[in-house]
Design a protein around this nucleic acid. Structure first.
Lengths: 210, 210
DNA sequence: AAGTATATCACCCATTTTGGGGGAATAGCT
DNA sequence: AGCTATTCCCCCAAAATGGGTGATATACTT
């Protein structure tokens, strides 16, 4: 078959059966083909320039270097490569971290032919295939904690503080005096049981107060 | 039909046909029912306590107050309510903002019976229904810009700076002297063409350098 | 009616932080 | 040999920070 118009795919997967199964499926369709399949991330990274894939199917449970780290390295060296994570952990924190590290989506190891090819199609078309549960985790990650001990004004002040604004700048933006901003910050520190800007930001970030 | 074991749903939608269509679909199944349907967000918000829905189907293109603002208000007053956004804008920034404001997922106005009910099922089961393209936007929102002008060390320093750390604290965490941290910050400011912490953080955040 | 939380503002004071100006040395890569 | 990255040093003035101890007014709850 002529490969010139087929999208190049690299597989990184230590399980021989899964790796060969995925290869067969991908090579059976006319729009994709597997340029190379590796059983570890190190070899894959070494040959990325030469393989020049559009998409990498990446196992998260790998021997040697961690799948998450591998994603980071690949994305750093080759930002245009899209990574689809391939994992047994349906809803784990690991998948979430993979998305943060730069993955474009994920499929599970027991995916059908159709699911695998659909996921690749989606990524090629600019989408991010993932389950509804993972999507929820992702969405939750930037939604605030509704049980914040801080008042709305305090939250507002803390948000500005977290953007590196000084007391005077905060005061200016909120049309209050510097002393009032300071007063809010004192109350924030007291409520969060901290006594410095960085501690307040750290705690607020951890508990999603801002 | 006995409503005691059916999940309560509120619809906010100014288009009469869509509102009534959705009501009919939802009321036709045994596990959900529409407690109330409003053509504006203000009335819906007023009656939220009384209606006590588990799910609100929220139109984004509303007369009166903005759909995004409405989501914020509803989530603030009633964090346990799950919002499903209902929009004509398949891939707009608006949908993305809605998710940030607290929505749990979205469906388009021309969704089929099945798609509507599937979306509700997913939300009830802790998922976040959304298209692959929206998922991609969401995932992209916390992935870094690969074309950063900053070196990795500088990025590291700027990340700590953005957490409210002082020069001395940064130095301590990176096992360098305060002067070196300062030197990096000088270079960061020069590369980003800014001359203060807050400007640097603002620019870096905007361009996803950190 | 009393209490609590919120939001606003003021002054004092010591210590730190910040940003800008000069440098310089080492390493690595092209 | 030039470039970038990373490390470190000194000087200095202005700004920011955190803690203290207040006051006033509004609003909501009990």
């Amino acid at each position: 078959m002529n490969n010139y118009f087929r999208s190049r795919i690299v597989i990184v997967e230590d399980n021989d059966a899964v790796r060969e199964g995925f290869s067969l499926i991908i090579n059976s369709v006319s729009n994709y083909y597997v340029v190379n399949a590796y059983d570890n991330a190190e070899d894959a990274i070494k040959n990325l320039r030469k393989d020049a894939p559009e998409i990498v199917l990446m196992d998260l449970e790998l021997p040697g270097i961690n799948g998450i780290e591998a994603i980071g390295v690949i994305k750093k060296n080759n930002p245009n490569i899209q990574l689809i994570v391939n994992t047994i952990y349906e809803n784990s924190e690991l998948v979430f971290q993979a998305l943060c590290a730069g993955a474009s989506g994920y499929i599970t190891k027991n995916s059908s032919h159709t699911e695998l090819l659909d996921a690749i199609d989606e990524v090629i078309n600019g989408g991010a295939p993932m389950s509804s549960k993972i999507a929820k985790m992702v969405v939750n990650s930037f939604q605030k904690n509704p049980n914040s001990p801080l008042s709305s004004r305090e939250t507002q002040v803390l948000e500005l503080l977290s953007k590196g604004k000084s007391y005077s700048m905060i005061a200016q933006e909120l049309f209050i005096t510097k002393e009032t901003a300071k007063s809010h910050i004192k109350n924030i520190y007291s409520k969060l049981q901290v006594n410095s800007k960085s501690e307040a930001i750290a705690k607020a970030t951890k508990e999603k107060l801002i």
